[in-house]
Write a protein that binds this DNA or RNA. Structure first.
Length: 854
RNA sequence: GCGGGCGUGGCGGAAUUGGUAGACGCGCUGGAUUCAAAAUCCAGUUCUGGUGACAGAGUGGGAGUUCGAUUCUCCCCGCCCGCACCA
């Protein structure tokens, strides 16, 4: 029995695709466009199973759409700036550029063994000046259009990476890469005005119908829109006013204090003459922002002695505290506290002995007797103790009080967002230099466009201490482009999410002189289908949506949403093992003897842990290269698609891989060991076809129909199941029935075409075996289902008595209800249950079911 | 705390708008082939009882709507994910 030779075939057909330029695209094709994109990888060194899954999913979509007649753009590139290159430089004394380029070469080679249908002529790497010079131009355009500003601000400082992090990069108070607790520091930073687009980004979510609800919701929460009011409190003995933000202006009559953040200008000012306050503020800044820190931290306040005048109650003055739970970067960094209707305010009031005045009482409650002790009342109700608001419900009171505040010119209706502007400055070497020059006389001077790119210096010493660009002896020293006097370059580089925020647009014309080629982006964008991990739900995917709008403002493109469809794939998981000492073990270090596992070398017992995401630290990784070497790319691809829906986690199992491998060989044998199908193609349908062959013929067309639908909806696992079912049917077809050869051949051709997007090399080999000469499946159209074969003349109808299945009957399609009823009642089992009595009722659902109610 | 999702055989997972639960695969059992093994092929495989035909139960648990519920409603349990001192 000849096994399928995957090594020979995979090389052969990859070469054939490349020689014929199968996957190179152009804009002139007279076919509808389809842009499918997978999130490009960071070139960390080698591809991992997550890549294999991601790129297999994308490749199936790309090949399927191509077969369906679309002009498919399917590019690949490298998200090549980032910290690991600098770490490698420190450890191995290799320049980051060399390290990155070597990794790219390795990973490109690995990806090519997977047989992915990329247009490699469009490959790009973000660390090359040919890419980032355009990024610098875009930044300067953003600057011109008022989308960029610099400001001194409190930032998240990662003490391990020695750099600033964006809010989106702080997970649970820790750096998203380092895992270290983030500190607050004040630095001068460049910001992109993503908040200008908060409303648009929020509204745009509605239009993203082909995005997972989960991601849409996460972005919605991240943007965090709330409606309320800004209110200005006059301060006793001072000229300035305190501006607070509240979503409950209706509770103003219950106010008993005001509080400002530790970093609030008022707190800062007062601390200069008050050492105790200065110490309190310093303590606040030291406090972590992690979950644990927040949970355990006491709500602390420091009474500044300043009093705020109540806007409506003459003579009522509220103490102004500095409080550790008030955030400077939300609202205006100041609040008023209404203890009766906010739990945290209540806790604070109880701690510091402040008044608790209820101003909303449940409908029908005795207003005079309604008191609050240790649980705040948050529900709707009617206002009490509130002068002109008394008797109103919460919504009406809000509206009324804001009208009054506006009339008095001490407050305004306001919408507030949780979203912050995107700080893009990073104190790193391996990133895109920010094209700005700081001049003592002229201030901030953009690098003139003709001087772009500002290239990274190659002779760099990376020590890990501080910013290497700032430490370079000459790089930062330039003459001011405006006045010619000595000046200094900006030594910060961009956050690496900057590069990935527009690469999908660059792929449309990756060799253009301008950042984007208007005709090309107008043709290709938006990306029709984007595929990648859920971990970018609020980072990359939100930044890209913002960038697209910003690029539109600068006249680069016309779309607002970059990704029309989004598929978020699950993780690739694998069993974990620990030895007796609790140390993680590689799967290869474990041997199974009966039901128990033992260490391969020592024989000591091993505990099998739960399946978790493949990671080096847990030692449960499987190297794709080894799998492709042992089984071939098609086996790996098929396995990735077979077992789990793409958005769910996938459990890697050796048995599953074996199963995929066995199926490939089964199909191979079915084609190569059966002489009849190898006859020349194109023979007409024979006059006589036996019923058994006719059934297979119907199965063929139903499978085409079903698989097409599954692939449209990305139900790859169901498509594989259907293909295997058809394989069983074709294999089971007896030789001696009329028309068997012809039907079998059609079945094998169909199977070949249907499986081609998933196992493209095998499909080419089968196509060749089927006598197709030099025709490539990659250039062959998707099969069409003949509607005539999709319907059956006879339907199998289930018969139930009182909802319990008693048997099935064969009925002509769409037959009369009384015929169905009679046939069902004629069943012995139905009769025995009825016991001679007439049925109380019979429900007939045509072509599906007859339910007899006894 | 807020928001969202999920729960189906030994396992991964299928089941149109409510209409034959367990497709397809993995694993397992028995058999064929083989000197033997691998590979391959055939048969079986939700659970319980029964040699068997068959009977009963069954989609996390409990109630409800319905002729009929994995699917819809309510309550509870368990697991997972996101956000989190957001005023």
């Amino acid at each position: 029995m000849a096994r399928y030779n995957f090594k020979e075939n995979e090389q052969k057909w990859q070469a054939a695709w490349e020689d014929q330029g199968c996957f190179q695209v152009d804009e002139t094709a007279d076919r509808p466009k389809y842009y499918v994109l997978e999130m490009f990888p960071y070139p960390s060194g080698r591809i991992h199973m997550g890549h294999v899954r991601n790129y297999t999913l994308g490749d199936v979509v790309a090949r399927y759409k191509k077969a369906r007649g679309f002009n498919v753009l399917h590019p690949m590139g490298w998200d090549a700036f980032g910290l690991p290159a600098e770490n490698a430089a420190m450890e191995n004394k290799v320049p980051p550029a060399d390290w990155t380029r070597e990794n790219i070469a390795t990973m490109r080679k690995q990806l090519k063994t997977m047989g992915l249908s990329y247009d490699w002529s469009r490959e790009l790497a973000t660390c090359e000046p040919g890419y980032y010079r355009h990024e610098q131009k875009i930044f300067l355009d953003f600057l011109k259009h008022g989308l960029v500003y610099q400001k001194e601000s409190w930032v998240n400082w990662d003490p391990v990476e020695n750099t600033v992090l964006a809010n989106e990069q702080v997970i649970d108070g820790r750096g998203w890469r380092s895992g270290e607790l983030v500190e607050k520091r004040q630095l001068s930073q460049w910001f992109l005005k993503i908040t200008d687009y908060a409303e648009e980004l929020l509204d745009g979510i509605e239009t993203l119908e082909r995005w997972p609800d989960r991601v849409r919701l996460m972005q919605e929460n991240w943007i965090g829109r709330s409606e309320g009011a800004h209110v200005h409190f006059a301060l006793e003995g001072r000229d300035d006013r305190l501006e607070i933000y509240t979503t409950r202006p209706d509770t103003l009559f219950g106010a008993s204090f005001c509080a400002v953040a530790a970093n609030h200008p008022l707190a800062q000012e007062l601390s200069r003459t008050n050492p105790d306050l200065a110490e309190f503020i310093a303590e606040c800044n030291r406090m972590g922002t992690s979950e644990a820190a927040i949970e355990t931290a006491e709500k602390l306040g420091f009474d500044t002695g300043v009093k705020a005048r109540h806007p409506f109650v003459d003579g009522k003055a509220l103490p102004v505290y500095v409080a550790n739970f008030v955030l400077m970067d939300y609202g205006s960094g100041a609040i008023f506290g209404c203890p009766a209707h906010d739990q945290r305010d209540l806790d604070f009031a109880n701690k510091y002995g402040l008044d608790v005045v209820p101003v909303v009482a449940p409908k029908g409650a005795d207003a005079a007797g309604f008191t609050i002790t240790d649980e705040a009342y948050l529900e709707d109700g009617l206002h009490i103790n509130s002068d002109f608001l008394d008797g109103l419900n919460v919504a009406d009171a809000k509206s009324t009080v804001i009208d009054r505040l506006e009339a008095m010119e001490i407050g305004t209706r306001a919408v507030n967002y949780r979203l912050r502007d995107w700080g893009v400055s990073r104190q790193r070497y391996w990133g895109c230099p920010i094209p700005i020059i700081h001049c003592g006389d002229c201030g901030i001077v953009p690098v003139p466009e003709q001087d772009l790119p500002v290239e990274l210096p190659v002779d760099i010493d990376i020590t890990g201490a501080g910013n290497p660009l700032a430490a370079h002896p000459t790089w930062k020293h330039v003459d001011c482009p405006t006045c010619g006097k000595p000046a200094q370059r900006e030594t910060d580089t961009f956050d690496t999410f900057f590069e990935s925020s527009w690469y999908f647009a660059r792929f449309c014309a990756p060799h253009a002189d301008a950042p984007l080629d208007r005709a090309a982006v107008d043709h290709w964008l938006p990306v029709d289908q984007y595929i990648g991990g859920i971990e970018h739900a609020v980072l990359h995917l939100l930044y890209s949506r913002f960038f697209t709008r910003a690029l539109k403002k600068c006249g680069y493109l016309s779309v607002e949403e970059p990704f029309a469809g989004l598929l978020t794939q699950g993780m690739v998981c694998h069993q974990t093992f620990k030895d007796a000492d609790g140390k993680w073990l590689l799967p290869t270090q474990v041997v199974f003897d009966g039901g128990s596992a033992a260490h391969a070398d020592t024989g000591r017992p091993v505990t099998a842990g739960r399946s978790e995401k493949m990671s080096k630290s847990k030692k449960n990784v499987v190297d794709p290269e080894a799998i492709i070497e042992a089984y071939g790319a098609d086996t790996a691809r098929l396995f990735m698609l077979s077992d789990s829906p793409p958005d769910r986690d996938l459990e890697w199992t050796d048995a599953g891989v074996d199963g995929a491998w066995r199926y490939l060989n089964r199909l191979w044998r079915l084609v190569t060991e059966n002489p009849a199908p190898r006859a020349a193609p194109g023979a007409g349908k024979p006059d006589s076809i036996d019923g058994a062959a006719e059934d297979v013929l119907k199965a063929i067309h139903k499978t085409i129909d079903g698989v097409s639908g599954d692939l449209e909806k990305f139900h790859f696992n169901k498509a594989v199941a259907r293909i295997r079912e058809l394989t069983n049917a074709v294999e089971g077809l007896k030789d001696d029935v009329a028309g068997a050869d012809w039907v079998r051949r059609l079945g094998l051709e169909t199977l070949t075409l249907l499986i081609a997007p998933m196992t493209p090399h095998l499909a080419e080999a089968l196509w060749h075996e089927l006598g197709r000469g030099n025709e490539l499946v990659a250039d062959t159209a998707w099969p069409e289902a003949d509607p005539a074969y999709l319907v059956d003349d006879l339907m199998t109808v289930a018969v139930q008595v009182n909802g319990k299945l008693k048997g099935t009957i064969e009925l002509p399609k769409d037959c009369a209800q009384d015929i169905a009823e009679d046939a069902a009642l004629a069943l012995d089992k139905v009769q025995s249950v009825l016991g001679g009595n007439p049925p109380r009722k019979v429900i007939v659902v045509p072509n599906r079911i007859v339910n007899v109610v006894a």
